[in-house]
Design a protein around this nucleic acid. Structure first.
Length: 455
DNA sequence: TTTTGAGTTGTTCGA
DNA sequence: GTCGAACAACTCAAA
């Protein structure tokens, strides 16, 4: 007999309860990764390239014993279990809409072969669905969720696997080659890189996190999002390294868990606004001009330096600073009047950390239809946001070469500088002041229509 | 059930 | 340039 560790979004050996459970259940352990065509090889997928790197690092850690098979998991996993005479298949539970469906299908197929699917742990310190109000319904507001999440607690990081543990070997496919995307550079993947970045952040930036995290021109954030996404480090390990004074950063870890919980409780929210009037009554833009606007947004050619820098950073690094994500999302929704459901998939296509829960609900928050009750008249000003959070213009010059000749904060307002357009930078596609008023009127109209529709 | 207090991330205006 | 108030009144959580 043997056991199978089916890796998915938990590509690490440290603090991996499912892996420990596999070893405890039978020391002849096969390490399996399934290339699922549903998640794999989507055109231009940045995450696919990152994942290939991460799998290659994991394979090295396993002394070349990572078994790769491609196909539908509900076929591949049971067949592999039978092939290696496994009694159990071990996984970290997945709480996303697709992941749950997939795992249930695999579990059913395994049962037919007399093999158990064992779920141990998850990608979260506190599994989605566990934090509930006293009436047993889920939270829709962050702060009370955070209070209960904190007191709920989580286990201390698990032991490492035994030193020199040897995994079993089985026939494997080769990892696909990365599909290089021109202009895109990804940081190194894998468990070792995750701990290296986490260590450096803890040493250099964590103490200033509360002040610097909003500054896209500085290295003020942890850059852990892609490592957490692929489970190269577990949030439990990160939380264990924090002190009482690191409340702001602990809250950011909790935001990831909150949004996973929200998605778990409302799986339809990947495409449907939590506040349904946004999908029914909002007069969104359409037609040729709207298409041109969306295209300018995607290409980073809106003529708003802070927006364009962010959209170009996305395609250069597969990442955008969180502050800038809010600004570019607000611009698409409230200046160009395009629904969040157009922007979210573009982010998912290009973000190396693209997480369906965090991405979906980050967008819904900005749109004003998500788990937040902030006033609808909150519209980000893309120019003043830039000047406030990139005060020297360094972030602009890094990503927008047409403005690299402007010094200091002048890069934020090329229209105020004689040679602002001497290097062919785009003119603003809209007038922010005008579009802000349009957005406010649209929200008011949607609310009115909703009231009148009698729903 | 009713009431009360509070809610990640903002902008603009006018003193 | 800085500061406080207004924006306009919703939804959620908890007592």
């Amino acid at each position: 007999m043997s056991s199978v560790m089916w890796f998915r979004r938990d590509l690490r050996l440290k603090d991996n309860p499912a892996l420990l459970d596999a070893i405890a259940s039978d020391p002849n352990v096969f390490a399996l990764f399934v290339l699922d065509p549903v998640l794999w090889g989507q055109p231009g997928s940045v995450r696919t390239n990152y994942l290939i790197d991460s799998l290659s690092k994991l394979n090295t850690q396993l002394a070349g014993r990572l078994v790769i098979r491609s196909g539908s998991p509900s076929v591949i996993v049971p067949n592999f279990a039978r092939e290696v005479s496994a009694g159990t298949v071990h996984i970290a539970a997945d709480f996303g809409p697709y992941g749950q469906k997939r795992d249930n299908a695999v579990e059913g197929a395994l049962t037919d072969f007399g093999v158990d699917l064992v779920r141990v742990g998850s990608a979260y310190a506190v599994a989605p669905g566990r934090v509930r109000k006293s009436d047993d319904t889920p939270y829709r507001v962050f702060t009370p969720f955070y209070k209960v999440w904190t007191t709920h607690g989580w286990r201390t990081p698990a032991d490492s696997i035994p030193k020199n543990f040897v995994f079993q070997s089985a026939p494997t496919e080769q990892l696909p080659q990365p599909n290089l995307i021109p202009g895109l550079t990804l940081p190194p993947a894998g468990e070792e890189a995750a701990w290296k970045f986490w260590g450096e952040f803890k040493e250099k930036a964590l103490a200033h996190y509360a002040d610097d995290r909003n500054r896209p021109d500085l290295a003020g954030t942890s850059s852990l999002s892609h490592h957490l996404k692929y489970g190269e480090i577990h949030p439990r390990s990160v939380l264990a390294g924090l002190g009482d004074s690191d409340e702001v950063f602990r809250k950011e870890i909790c935001w990831r868990e909150f949004y996973a919980d929200v998605l778990f409780n409302t799986p339809q929210s990947t495409h449907a606004s939590l506040n349904e009037k946004f999908d029914v009554n909002m007069p969104w833009a359409s037609g040729a001009t709207a298409e041109e606007h969306v295209n300018a947004w995607k290409q980073g050619q809106t003529g708003f330096p802070f927006v364009d820098a962010g959209m170009r950073q996305l395609r250069a690094e597969g990442w955008i600073h969180n502050r800038v994500r809010m600004v570019v999302a607000s611009f698409l929704i409230k200046d160009l009047h395009i629904p969040w459901q157009v922007g979210a998939p573009w982010f998912m296509q290009w973000l190396r950390d693209g997480d369906i829960a965090s991405n979906t609900h980050g967008w819904q928050w900005t749109a004003g239809c998500g788990t937040d009750a902030s006033p609808f008249y909150r519209v980000f000003n893309p120019i003043t946001q830039g000047i406030k959070f990139d005060p020297h213009g360094d972030y602009i010059r890094r990503y927008v070469p047409e403005l690299a000749h402007l010094s200091g904060a002048a890069a934020h307002e090329p229209w105020n500088t004689p040679d602002g357009y001497s290097h062919h930078y785009s003119r603003p596609v809209v007038d922010h002041k005008v579009e802000r008023e349009v957005a406010l009127a649209n929200y008011a109209a949607a609310k009115e229509n909703f009231a009148n529709s009698g729903s």
